[in-house]
């Protein structure tokens, strides 16, 4: 798929996110918007998967470790055809499969329930180990938030991926430098960040995570790395695409109000 088309989908997905959160009245726009290119590129260009056969055994797997950013994943899955786009507006409503944090038993295409931070990479390791045991060629992708990597379990999992030389695994860190209480540098210093991953035995790729060409290039490069896991540290802008949300920490976990939804959609090119 051409980059222009992927850009169009990113815009569409960002509009979905805004509409969903506006309708729900709560949720996490900042990290959903920052990671749009990272996830859209996977589902529309990089990964082998079948929307009409979500359990296809040779599919590539995606684990959203930062489960609170599920509006992004729901929008992408719907746009891929896993479920009707209209369902998106049921986000966080009683009885909806689209829970506030993703539940794999409810939504086709969700590989694992996540939301309690720090657990996704361990699950991804297990799926990668099973792939190797079963002599399958599928790849496993796991998206983490940078703030999420405060969790100790992440570093346990980072050691495991290295110990078992999981080159069928690619972690992506949405390095938007903000977390719920403020700047990651103020809350818990992560730097020297790429060096940490390298010291744990990972191959590190650093990119502008909102630049689709760089994102696609990184995924391609990651596939070629053998004998060790790869992490893509993606520098992104939290709230990307909406001027009043970009780099503003308060948009980590609050939904836009009606007039903010309209303003945001206008910025995203929607005629109202």
């Amino acid at each position: 798929m051409k980059i222009k088309e992927l850009q169009r989908i990113c815009l569409e997905v960002r509009r979905d996110i805004i509409r969903m959160l506006g309708e729900a009245g709560s949720g996490h726009p900042g990290g959903s918007l920052s990671a749009a290119e990272l996830v859209v590129a996977l589902y529309f260009s990089v990964m082998k998967h079948r929307a009409k056969e979500p359990d296809w055994e040779d599919r590539d797997r995606f684990i959203l470790s930062k489960g609170h950013c599920c509006p992004l994943l729901y929008a992408v899955l719907a746009r891929c055809g896993y479920f009707p786009v209209e369902k998106l507006l049921t986000l966080r409503k009683l009885g909806s499969p689209l829970q506030g944090h993703p539940h794999n038993l409810e939504v086709p295409g969700i590989e694992a329930s996540t939301g309690s931070l720090g657990q996704g990479l361990s699950i991804a390791n297990g799926i990668a180990l099973a792939g190797r045991l079963n002599k399958k060629n599928y790849r496993v992708y796991c998206l983490l938030g940078d703030g999420e990597t405060d969790e100790g379990q992440v570093w346990e999992a980072v050691m495991t991926s290295n110990h078992y030389h999981l080159d069928n695994l690619c972690a992506i860190v949405d390095r938007n430098r903000l977390q719920i209480d403020g700047k990651t540098a103020d809350i818990m210093q992560l730097e020297p960040y790429p060096e940490k991953w390298r010291a744990f035995g990972w191959y590190v790729i650093e990119i502008d995570g909102n630049n689709l060409a760089e994102v696609l290039g990184a995924y391609l490069q990651a596939e070629k790395i053998k004998g060790k896991p790869t992490v893509i540290i993606a520098r992104t802008i939290k709230g990307k695409g909406i001027s009043f949300m970009e780099n503003e920490v308060e948009w980590h976990g609050q939904a836009p109000k009606k007039e903010e939804v309209e303003k945001a959609l206008k910025e995203l090119g929607e005629r109202i």
Partner: peptide
């Protein structure tokens, strides 16, 4: 903690 997650991934 990592063992539990890995086991879950294997089970899934």
């Amino acid at each position: 903690a990592d063992m539990v997650g890995t086991a879950a991934g294997l089970a899934l």
